[in-house]
């Protein structure tokens, strides 16, 4: 868990994946691999991008660290601070609100005792509100790792929380 004491390096398999991705673009355009590689890095290193991890990615792609920071901070999927094992991303956009997303959000806030952007003291859950996830007909929607949970009710959300507590495994996008 403690990122500082671990050497920041991809496994041989992950490295092979990174080189395959770089090969998708013309010579000298390896910067195009930045988003896919940042996703891999986030998944590998506790689901957030520390400055050290970003420097490592910059090094791998042969670009300046600032080029990585400015991209990582632009896109909402990259976490720039440590997060809980499960990041609960609740859609807060109009269509989901028409079918009860706000109720779901306030239920989760009460249940977990945190506001969006915060993490529970046990490091289990981070609550995050996000914009439309392209599942508007099946709202309220919550994304956790790569999985979409649709047509959620407060009851179903409670069951999910229980399930996550039991599994106790970090959920990442890829």
């Amino acid at each position: 868990m403690d990122i500082d004491t671990r050497e920041i390096r991809f496994s041989a398999e992950r490295l092979a994946e990174v080189y395959e991705i770089i090969g998708r673009y013309p010579e000298g355009r390896q910067k195009s691999a930045l988003l896919p590689v940042l996703h891999i890095a986030q998944a590998e290193f506790d689901n957030w991008l520390s400055p050290e991890v970003m420097d490592y990615v910059a090094d791998l792609l042969g670009i300046q660290p600032i080029e990585v920071y400015e991209v990582a901070s632009f896109y909402t999927m990259f976490n720039l601070k440590p997060v809980g094992k499960y990041v609960l991303e609740v859609c807060r956009t109009g269509p989901c609100c028409l079918v009860g997303a706000e109720k779901l959000q306030s239920h989760l806030e009460t249940k977990l005792g945190i506001k969006p952007g915060e993490t529970t003291p046990d490091g289990m859950f981070t609550l995050k509100t996000v914009e439309c996830l392209a599942a508007c007909g099946f709202g309220p929607v919550m994304q956790v790792g790569a999985t979409y949970y649709e047509r959620l009710t407060p009851e179903k959300a409670d069951e999910l929380l229980e399930q996550f507590r039991k599994e106790n495994k970090r959920a990442t996008y890829c």
Binding site: R24, S32, L35, H39, F74, F78, V130, C132
Partner: peptide, 12 residues
């Protein structure tokens, strides 16, 4: 023809 899939990062 080579065809690749590229992920975005969360930005409308």
């Amino acid at each position: 023809l080579e065809l690749y899939v590229q992920p975005g990062g969360g930005a409308y």
